[in-house]
């Protein structure tokens, strides 16, 4: 394992060094990452990068090959547009983790902000902690797994793919155009394999699946405004 001190490096310079080391078949640990943006952008080389600290925005964006492990927290948009490989975040991730994820695996051992998996198209995004609102919004494929609490807008306008949740209150937090369903045996097996691989103590049979409907918002009808004369009649203009 090689060590790279990023204290005086720019994100771009660090990535040049990382590519060089991975290209030579060396795994690398990055010290003093000081929440740098764009670590690991688009790397195609195989191998492992460990970031001994926290990262800024776009960690592992468009990643296509290596495994990146962040021992601290990751900023917004971790693993955006990721193509393949692995991004492991040991603590928490900011908003929009895994947005437009194409393929590969992202594992976040802590929680995330809003909109994890926004528009994701494939791959796996596993969030072991809580997730903010609008998780899996407009998902086009892949699987999003949330083992902690979920917030409002879950699965809003999901087109394809599936969101697995443990939160028993998930049904009351659903966005539009999706429904809660049971897991198939195949899904349970596949998820248990995933949990085993990443050392996550969870039984897949305890989860429920949020799946897309092909009607509703996917037909051109207006959902707003919902005009409710009865509520207007009871509204007190002085108290709100």
């Amino acid at each position: 394992m090689e060590f790279v001190d990023a204290k005086t490096l720019s994100g771009k310079d660090l990535n040049v060094i990382l590519k060089d080391r991975l290209g030579k078949g060396l795994d690398v640990t990055v010290k003093n990452s000081h929440s740098m943006h764009n670590i690991g952008t688009g790397m195609k080389e195989k191998g492992k990068i460990v970031v001994d600290g926290s990262t800024g925005f776009y960690t592992g964006g468009f990643l296509e090959g290596p495994s990146i492990e962040v021992l601290g927290d990751a900023g917004w948009y971790a693993g955006d547009n990721m193509m393949s490989g692995e991004l492991i975040i040991r603590k928490n991730a900011g908003c929009n983790a895994g947005s437009y994820l194409y393929d590969g695996t992202i594992v976040i051992y802590g929680g995330t902000g809003n909109r994890p998996g926004y528009g994701m198209k494939g791959g796996t995004l596993l969030i072991c902690g809580d997730a903010g609102g609008w998780a899996g919004q407009m998902t086009l494929g892949g699987r999003l797994i949330i083992l902690g609490k979920v917030a409002a807008g879950l699965g809003e306008s999901i087109y394809k793919g599936v969101i697995y949740v443990k939160d028993r209150e998930a049904e009351s937090k659903l966005g539009s155009n999706c429904f809660v369903d049971d897991l198939t045996g195949e899904e349970i097996t596949s998820l248990n394999d995933l949990f085993g691989k990443y050392g996550v103590d969870q039984e897949a049979a305890e989860l429920r699946a949020v799946r897309p409907m092909t009607t509703g918002r996917h037909n051109y009808v207006l959902f707003d405004p919902q005009l409710e004369p009865e509520k207007a009649r009871k509204y007190n203009p002085f108290q709100g």
Partner: peptide, 18 residues
């Protein structure tokens, strides 16, 4: 990667740059 025949109202904002 869409279901066939839906009326598409696509994503309103970039999900990777707010």
């Amino acid at each position: 990667q869409l279901p066939v025949g839906i009326d598409l109202h696509s994503h309103p904002r970039h999900g990777d740059a707010f």
